[in-house]
């Protein structure tokens, strides 16, 4: 009985698509707003009737999970929040689940950002994950936010050899030497793993070019779907693992929940997003098919005339 809502919605969308196909067969065009309405409904309806699917991690996602999981307790992990609000629906869930994983494994999380907006995006992870799930962890001892520095690859070029020179204080102006978690950190070579969370420039590419390759520190990433295909050439030699878009994030969430019993009830925003994704993908594929029917009919007409 609980499935009746989604079934009705799917039936309505299917009926709408059939109507669109019939119009196409008659050679009639549709207003762009009709197309927009289809997308709106196909995204909104599954959100109102959420269905979550269990996602099996693909090798590239699993590789990042294993890279964090197999590090010895207390390892230093650098998390770079290189994203902005437009990317946040995709990247924030990755940032949250990866930070949760890093802290659950009792690693030290050193956070920074190459995007000015990343400093504010980090605060979301801090409030939703660090302060909620790990209230006993102390800022400066178990985790720290070094904040933003301008200069894109210029920042990476300096921290590759001298971290303190670029970050003499953390985001709250606490001197580098007074932060216990940074004791022993001289350069990026002192980190056990670096994870770039982003999808623009500067982002993963710059981390690989300016830090990963010259220092040999393993680099992992969670990126927006738009750039994910461009980063595959770095895997596996220059990149330990990659989460691409909300699909990668949902696989990671699912795998993390399966492996960490205590977080079984954690929020899984990416898994919830896969419902609307599924319906929207089907609708877009239907659009392509209908558009092509229209195209072939027009071509046949042209051929006949």
């Amino acid at each position: 009985m609980g499935n009746i809502g989604p079934i009705i919605v799917l039936a309505l969308i299917a009926a709408g698509l059939v109507w669109l196909l019939l119009r196409a067969l008659k050679g009639q065009e549709v207003d762009r707003r009709v197309i927009f309405a289809f997308i709106l409904v196909s995204v909104a309806a599954p959100l109102l009737m959420p269905v979550t699917f269990k996602a099996k991690p693909t090798p590239i996602v699993r590789a990042l999970f294993d890279a964090i999981d197999e590090l010895p307790e207390g390892s230093r992990v650098l998390l770079s929040f290189d994203f902005d609000p437009p990317m946040s629906p995709e990247v924030q869930p990755m940032a949250d689940v990866i930070t949760r994983h890093v802290l659950a494994k009792k690693h030290q999380a050193i956070c920074m950002t190459l995007w000015a907006t990343g400093q504010a995006q980090f605060n979301i992870t801090m409030n939703d994950v660090i302060k909620t799930d790990f209230p006993n962890l102390v800022e400066g001892v178990d985790w720290v936010n070094m904040g933003y520095k301008a200069g894109n690859e210029g920042v990476l070029n300096v921290i590759r050899t001298d971290f303190k020179k670029m970050f003499p204080t953390d985001a709250n102006s606490i001197p580098f030497d007074s932060i216990p978690i940074l004791r022993g950190v001289r350069s990026c070579g002192d980190f056990d793993l670096i994870i770039s969370l982003g999808g623009g420039r500067p982002g993963l590419k710059e981390w690989v070019l300016f830090v990963g390759d010259p220092t040999g520190v393993p680099i992992g990433a969670g990126v927006a779907a738009v750039v994910a295909p461009q980063l595959y050439p770095y895997y596996p030699r220059q990149l330990v693992g990659l989460l691409g878009g909300v699909k990668g994030a949902s696989e990671y969430e699912s795998h993390f929940r399966d492996n960490y019993e205590q977080y079984r009830d954690m929020p899984t925003p990416a898994m919830v997003m896969m419902g609307p994704q599924t319906v929207a993908h089907i609708v877009i594929m239907a659009f392509i098919v209908i558009g092509n029917v229209l195209f072939f009919l027009a071509r046949r007409k042209e051929g006949q005339s």
Binding site: I39, F287, G291, N292
Partner: peptide, 16 residues
């Protein structure tokens, strides 16, 4: 952009 990508799929993505 979600709307525009859908519109482009309908109008421009042809198996020419």
């Amino acid at each position: 952009l979600a709307f525009f990508v859908a519109s482009a799929s309908y109008r421009a993505f042809r198996a020419k």
